[in-house]
Nucleic acid binder design. Structure first.
Lengths: 192, 192
DNA sequence: TTTAAAATGCGTCAAATGACCTCTTTCTTT
DNA sequence: AAAGAAAGAGGTCATTTGACGCATTTTAAA
């Protein structure tokens, strides 16, 4: 049932069969209905989360109730609230399912143990962290300097598959623009 | 001459005298005049950079020539272009000196070696990386959700010391707002 | 000290943006 | 299949923002 995860650990992380088995042994599987919350602000993030199928979002809720999406997390990607996970302190972000999803959860201690036992997993983990840093930087530059239209184009180019899976209001929330502005941009580009 | 650095490695990183000595042995000192570029877009980032005294900025230049500051780096802080450093590929960011500064540079190989030899340095390095990730996340949320006025207030609260050291146009460039808007905000808050 | 350059404050104006609202369409769920 | 909820298109309008230009002050360098 964890075929997808198995294959991922094999091909992307480069784990041996034995290490894949060890990694699977420590994991909990969960099926999420659309809309299910996996982590709520204020809770403690106790797991590393891998999405085998479906789509999650990682977002902050502002004082006025507005939502701001930090990350869409589709199949074959990872998510968590790093700071909450590292220090086991209350989370500032929320994670929920945009689509019905199949996810795998590693409790922090168990994952930590795996990192010790499996150097290849450790190396792969670091790679993921690095990529995350690079893309955060890029996202920040974009947020600082790009026009709404440029942001939208970047999104379309970077995540062409998500466009049809994510409601527009969430894309707006990810880009930091209003739904109205997003609508105007799309209308303008539809004319060409 | 590297008293500041020595003390920093001792107190903040928790290195033993012997490890401090080893770390210092691998470092190059440089004095920078105001305005000196330490890294230019397109160059390869070959060093970890520690600012013992002064103030650097890490920024991107957009296609239209406008500058967008990712990070101010005052004394006792570190900076580099991570992606360029990790992969030794052309940098996307620039680093220069806002004030005359005293900096210390570790060539990548040498620093890598130190990380192997000195576990305490390795642990400290990880801590710095983590903090960087947390603050990037926070910055992104702020960029997405805060009004210009809130961004300015956050800046003032987070870096009270920098306000008088950094020209307003650079603060505007850091916050992702125009100098005009920043001026209006300051005028409004001066009235109270 | 003098001179040049940079920083900043401020006015005007046009454009961009978001808040609010309504109506229609599309999904969900029962 | 039917009812209810959510999504999104589109209109109007007030506000915010930035572009441009100019005057004044401050800072840096000769």
């Amino acid at each position: 049932m964890s075929l997808i995860l198995e294959q991922y650990l094999h091909e992307k992380a480069g784990l041996s069969d034995a290490d894949v088995a060890r990694t699977l042994a420590a994991v909990q599987a969960r099926s999420l209905q659309r809309g299910t919350m996996l982590l709520q602000e204020g809770q403690i993030c106790r797991y590393k989360i891998f999405v085998a199928d479906g789509l999650l979002r990682n977002y902050a809720v502002a004082a006025d109730g507005s939502e701001h999406i930090l990350q869409f997390c589709p199949e074959l990607h990872w998510t968590l609230d790093v700071e909450s996970y590292d220090h086991q302190t209350p989370a500032r972000f929320n994670i929920d399912a945009i689509e019905a999803s199949e996810v795998y959860l590693w409790p922090k201690d168990a994952f930590h143990q795996l990192l010790h036992e499996i150097p290849a997993l450790e190396a792969f983990s670091r790679q993921l962290v690095s990529r995350n840093i690079y893309s955060s930087r890029h996202r920040l530059v974009s947020a600082l300097s790009a026009t709404p239209e440029e942001k939208y184009q970047e999104f379309v180019n970077s995540y062409p598959g998500l466009l049809s899976r994510v409601p527009l209001r969430m894309i707006a929330s990810y880009l930091g623009i209003s739904l109205k502005t997003l609508g105007r941009i799309r209308q303008a580009s539809a004319r060409h």
